[in-house]
Computed example of a mutant assay.
Amino acid sequence: MTTAEWDALPGTVKTFMAALDAQEFDRALATFTSDAVVTDDGRDYAGTDKIRTWLATAVTEYTYTATFTGASATDGGVDVGQHLEGDFPGGVVDLNYRFTLDGAAIRRLVIEP
Rank of each mutant, 00 (worst) to 15 (best):
M1P: 11
T2K: 14
T3Y: 11
A4P: 00
A4Q: 14
E5I: 12
E5H: 15
W6A: 06
A8F: 00
L9E: 02
G11L: 09
T12I: 09
T12K: 01
T12N: 04
V13S: 07
V13P: 02
K14T: 12
K14S: 04
F16G: 00
M17P: 04
M17Q: 04
M17E: 09
A18R: 09
A18K: 14
L20M: 13
A22D: 12
A22M: 03
Q23L: 11
D26E: 14
R27A: 15
R27D: 04
R27N: 06
L29D: 04
S34M: 00
S34K: 12
S34V: 07
D35R: 04
D35K: 04
A36P: 01
A36H: 02
V37H: 01
V37A: 07
T39A: 08
R43E: 13
D44W: 01
D44K: 05
Y45L: 01
A46Q: 09
T48A: 12
D49E: 14
D49T: 14
K50P: 01
I51Q: 03
R52C: 02
T53A: 15
T53P: 00
T53V: 11
W54V: 01
L55H: 03
A56E: 13
A58H: 08
Y62M: 06
T65P: 04
T65K: 11
T65C: 00
T67V: 15
T67D: 10
F68V: 10
T69G: 04
A71S: 15
A73K: 08
A73V: 13
T74W: 10
T74V: 05
D75R: 14
D75P: 04
D75T: 12
G76W: 04
G77F: 07
D79R: 13
G81S: 08
Q82I: 12
E85H: 13
D87T: 09
F88C: 07
F88P: 04
G91F: 10
V93D: 02
D94I: 10
L95V: 13
N96E: 11
N96D: 01
Y97E: 02
R98E: 11
T100K: 07
T100M: 01
L101C: 06
L101G: 01
G103M: 09
G103T: 12
A104Y: 08
A105I: 00
A105V: 08
A105L: 15
A105M: 13
R108F: 03
R108T: 07
R108S: 07
L109K: 06
V110D: 09
I111P: 01
I111N: 02
P113Y: 07
